[in-house]
Simulated scan of single mutants.
Amino acid sequence: MNVQRDGIGAVETMAVAVDLAIFTVRDDTLQVLLIERGKAPFLGRVALPGGYVRAQENLDHAARRELQEETDIRSAGDKSGLHLEQLGSYGDPGRDPRGRVVTVAYLALGPNLPTPVAGTDARHAYWTPVQELLAAPDTLAFDHATILRDAVERARTRLEYTTVAAAFCAEPFSVSDLRRVYEAVWGIALDPSNFRRKVTRAEGFLEATGEQRIPEVGRPAALYRKGEAELLIPPLLRSTNATRPPVAPG
């Protein structure tokens, strides 16, 4: 960490980093990607993937590079279907023992994401259920428990007001597939008939493919792809759709 002087006093130079909260739904459970750190600080502790922003790259490029280098999962631009957006900035002075580091956190959502492959300074990369981490926030290094908690709430809110839930579904998908995404992210049970009525009537949310999935038992399920809408009209609110109380984010 470099120190410069401006004639008044010492000015500490800040480093900029990116961290990623990457979510997928596995076994009807919201899971987040973690790495086991292979370097100090927090050697051997688990953390969200991330790293420093290089001099000649912007924040989005840094996020995509770290995503690939530490986990071998690629982001938007390679047709993987991974949704990536900025979550927020975190800059408490003591968040990193190496010095003053401000991180820009990203939220990533994707369907059927593969088993990650660790690289660079990560010993191991793996998926773990979000609720386990929310119940034991001291598990995570740095201030990543705070970032994770904020990312979970952002994802839950996004599902209320936007069509991003479809980012968790490999196309084509059924309404039941989509409902399981909502239940996994929100941590609540939803009434199947009421859910189907609302999402199929939402403007531009779903586009019927004309195909059906034939199960071994039960009725055929109509298949859909994501429509052109980005906003969910009308919104689908947790508070008015739960059949049991939601799981608290922290």
Score class of each variant (00 low, 15 high):
5 R>S: 12
7 G>H: 01
7 G>F: 01
10 A>Y: 08
12 E>S: 07
12 E>D: 05
12 E>M: 09
12 E>I: 14
15 A>T: 08
19 D>E: 14
22 I>T: 14
24 T>N: 02
26 R>Y: 00
26 R>F: 00
27 D>A: 15
29 T>I: 09
30 L>M: 14
31 Q>E: 15
34 L>C: 02
34 L>Y: 00
40 A>M: 08
40 A>L: 08
42 F>K: 06
43 L>F: 11
43 L>S: 04
48 L>M: 06
49 P>V: 06
51 G>N: 04
53 V>T: 05
53 V>F: 05
55 A>T: 13
56 Q>T: 10
57 E>F: 01
58 N>H: 03
61 H>R: 12
66 E>I: 02
68 Q>Y: 11
71 T>H: 00
71 T>V: 01
73 I>F: 00
74 R>C: 07
75 S>A: 15
80 S>C: 04
81 G>Y: 10
87 L>I: 06
90 Y>E: 00
92 D>M: 04
93 P>C: 02
93 P>L: 00
93 P>S: 00
97 P>F: 03
98 R>S: 09
100 R>T: 10
102 V>D: 04
106 Y>V: 02
107 L>F: 09
108 A>W: 03
113 L>W: 03
113 L>S: 02
114 P>W: 07
117 V>C: 08
120 T>D: 13
121 D>W: 10
127 W>Q: 07
128 T>N: 03
129 P>K: 08
130 V>F: 03
134 L>R: 12
135 A>K: 14
136 A>L: 10
136 A>W: 06
138 D>H: 09
150 D>W: 04
153 E>I: 10
155 A>M: 14
157 T>D: 08
163 T>Q: 11
163 T>R: 08
163 T>L: 09
167 A>F: 12
170 A>V: 11
171 E>A: 15
173 F>I: 08
174 S>A: 15
180 R>P: 11
182 Y>E: 04
182 Y>M: 06
186 W>V: 05
186 W>M: 07
188 I>S: 12
193 S>G: 13
193 S>C: 07
195 F>P: 04
198 K>H: 14
198 K>Y: 07
207 E>N: 09
209 T>I: 01
209 T>E: 03
210 G>V: 09
215 P>E: 00
218 G>I: 09
218 G>P: 03
220 P>K: 04
222 A>W: 04
228 E>K: 12
229 A>T: 13
230 E>P: 05
232 L>P: 09
233 I>F: 07
235 P>W: 00
236 L>E: 05
237 L>E: 09
238 R>A: 13
240 T>G: 08
243 T>Y: 10
245 P>F: 07
250 G>Q: 02
